[in-house]
Design a protein around this nucleic acid. Sequence first.
RNA 1: GUGGUCGUAGCUCAGCUGGUAGAGCACCGGGUUGUGGUCCCGGGGGUCGCGGGUUCAAGUCCCGUCGGUCACCCCA
Length: 443
Amino acid sequence: MSKPTPISGFPEWLPAQRMIEQNIVERIRATFELYGFAPLETRAVEPLDQLLRKGETSKEVYVLRRLQEEPGAQSADSLGLHFDLTVPFARFVLENSGKLQFPFRRYQIQKVWRGERPQEGRYREFLQADIDVVDRDDLPFHYDTEMPLVIGDAFASLPIPPATILVNNRKVCEGFYRGLGLDDPDQVLRTVDKLDKIGPEKVAALLVETAGATDAQARACLELASISTADASFVDAVRALGVDNPLLDEGLEELVRVVEAGVEHAPGLIRAELKIARGLDYYTGTVYETQLQGYERFGSICSGGRYENLATAGNERFPGVGISIGVSRMLGLLFGQNALGVSRSVPTCVVVALPAEELRPACDRIARSLRSRGISTEVAPSAAKFGKQIRFAERRGIPYVWFPGADGAADTIKDIRSGDQVEADASTWQPTAGDLTPVVSGS
RNA sequence: GUGGUCGUAGCUCAGCUGGUAGAGCACCGGGUUGUGGUCCCGGGGGUCGCGGGUUCAAGUCCCGUCGGUCACCCCA
């Protein structure tokens, strides 16, 4: 059999990277819980009509199919792997609304699948860390202002470059476009979103061509898109463009609240960026996008927004707002730049040296004693020369080697980084706090 | 899904206009008969991503495919 090869878009990290991922996920989880979000996991599959029910394109949904399927089976394409965590969540809320208390806030950290063409930081199977809040009938707006604060805290707890959360509001754009007399806001939005890639001239031309805009209207759209401020001053800039529309007013008012909450909570975290349109099709108001400083060219690693109608069935309506960290994407980018490191490639803190195979039971007792006090320990694989046993630890970044005392002498422990070796008792010895578990750091 | 580009040892790469593979680092062993990281000596390891084709002969040319990456699409 020939050597197996990777499957495009399905990344597998090495243990050191997986330790970093676990560490980061744990910090994100802790922050989510600090804000009172409750844990939730939904199944990997959803009925295809649920996944596609928001109208839109066929997405790149993977369907589930049995290998040994009866020919002509009807239900072949009825299940698909979820491509985000918001749609399954909306379904879950509808299904369990009777058992939940509202407003309901939950987090979900799970794999999702998209059949997109992979490249660095873009995968077909990847991990998302998602928070959402939904309420019955109406969701107070202050939750829109809370989302970026949670993310800001989560990111601040990670060894990564500072994050900037870019915020916009669909109502601002739509209201502005309608106030201008353009009646296909979605088309305008899609076109304006290409601004960074194709430049203002081409966007203007496209607006005239595909959205029925006049040159003046196109220019106004570009001026709106150029507005970017770290405080509420964007309102004046928009007003100066002289467009009047009730939806625009509503959007501006909302956006101001988000930005001001951010300024109060963590200066520099948030920017009002009126050109961003991103996010799935179900967003109706606030939209978020996040860049890491120094990684702007890699795009957003965390995004979300307000959705008014996603969880709706009959008379029941559960508007929500949420945001999702692209954990795999973020890690892939940072790994690619060698921007994350871990102090050792295994959890092990202490290797117990094995003087002779007959002494393995005694060494196992030492290990058991250390483990009982929470110190990750393994016994050397064989009674090789001590030099090799030390090297075994060194290769993995394990900081300590334990030497059982011979002939009744006291045991000793060696810090192989400094070479210091001191007497120690397995029932009381403690590593320094920084050595107990692997340390993840930016680099 | 469309197009571009790349794919030689674990890693970084060399291999001229085709003549059946090399370096550095890493790894293993010995010098150092049980306490490593220096130094010296020696060693293992590659179906040149995979499969076809052209040719007396292909890592080197052609086609396909898989994988990485970039752009489009879309988005974490």
